[in-house]
Design a protein around this nucleic acid. Sequence first.
DNA 1: CGGTATTTTGAGTAGATTCAAGCTTGGTGG
DNA 2: CCACCAAGCTTGAATCTACTCAAAATACCG
Lengths: 239, 239
Amino acid sequence: MIERHLARLHARHQLTAEEQHAIRATVAEVREFRRGMTVVRQGDRLSTSMLVVEGFLARYKDLAGGHRQISELHVPGDFADLHGFTLKRLDHSILTITDARIAIVPHERIGELVDAFPRIMRLYWFSTNLDAAIHREWVVSLGSRTALSRVAALFCELHTRLDVVGLMKGDSFEFPLNQSELGECMGLTAVHVNRTLRQIRERGLATFRRGRVDVHDLAGLREVAEFDDSYLYLDGYEE
Amino acid sequence: MIERHLARLHARHQLTAEEQHAIRATVAEVREFRRGMTVVRQGDRLSTSMLVVEGFLARYKDLAGGHRQISELHVPGDFADLHGFTLKRLDHSILTITDARIAIVPHERIGELVDAFPRIMRLYWFSTNLDAAIHREWVVSLGSRTALSRVAALFCELHTRLDVVGLMKGDSFEFPLNQSELGECMGLTAVHVNRTLRQIRERGLATFRRGRVDVHDLAGLREVAEFDDSYLYLDGYEE
DNA sequence: CGGTATTTTGAGTAGATTCAAGCTTGGTGG
DNA sequence: CCACCAAGCTTGAATCTACTCAAAATACCG
């Protein structure tokens, strides 16, 4: 059920069988949501965190004029709001991009878990710091990259993150956003995203079609994006 | 010495005298740096964290073409790299924007501190989550705000953060960045920052001159920025 | 006082937006 | 099985925001 979460942790840290068991035991229930649902609303007081079992979620903020900025995407294996454990209310909302299955983890149980296993506390702290590293990379994209390089960097990020949880299928991966949502991530209009995707296709780097990315030239894509995966900390946390 | 750090914590949480004393005791030494020094280099292995006593620091990443993107500013009272405690190496570098005094806190002592005071562990975890919230707000700025609104939002952020640590002087505060550095924060060229600052001045919102911001119309500035300080969590963490 | 860094202004350009229309695709019901 | 509808994709043309390049003015430092 939360295998992908354990895979994600395991990509960066060692985990004993006992630790794995304790983590599994924190799940109170699994809930299903339809796509397009706001599952956490900015400012709500939280007493649980949400672990993505299946589907894609997004953190976002609404702005005047109906505009929406997405600040992070979540894939299976991610906590969408582990930071809610310390923050208690969020400065952003969370939305399902696709139909999704989500494991609900009460903060009370996270508290017990990290009290009993101080090592897991560090790993979970690490995990929220990794979210911050992803935010920083988006700041770089939005502040300094061209539309082409931005979209390429987003593809590279998801490519790597999905690979970690076993969701790469050969050279392609599911990326079930529409062009408008891609724009909400990368600060572009849907029209310009469309033109940018055409460029990426015409350069032979990748093809985005019906919520799926086919990578034709990973090295080229990374070069265009100036992508360096070290911000995803795949070598993990060494004590 | 680390009074501003305690003030910053105190703005969001209660702290007992014993906790305060324990936090003070983690400082191993205080070092002075000249402005423009890279004090942490991306990828370096870290065994200490840096607590800003005096001066401004910035987290940044270098890009091809000599371009540099700043992802967060640090003011007195902030840890510049508390996330290094769990990440052990950073995905970005850190630079002194001004001459600075920095308290060096060994990770070993942070480990002992949070083991002895689980409450402080949560507060420090909270603190790195607050950095992430600041990153998210920058993502919103860079992705969705105009140049005018972006710069206004940055002024509002610093206004609030400096107020917390007692560095507001009436309606003005020190903000010792040049226009080029402001541009590196907000994804703008120095030339465009200059034109944007003129607009802010001509609208009677604020004046930026010689590293200082004079706020003339805080409500107006916040309106232009669509600023809502809730992402700075000044109501803190309630157990 | 001279030299350097920074700010300011101007003119031309480029990347991304806006607005609008037409086209595909996938799903639904007759 | 086809007609139709809604959502999303694609393209074009005009516009705008921010960038580039360049030069002059000002502020700062030794």
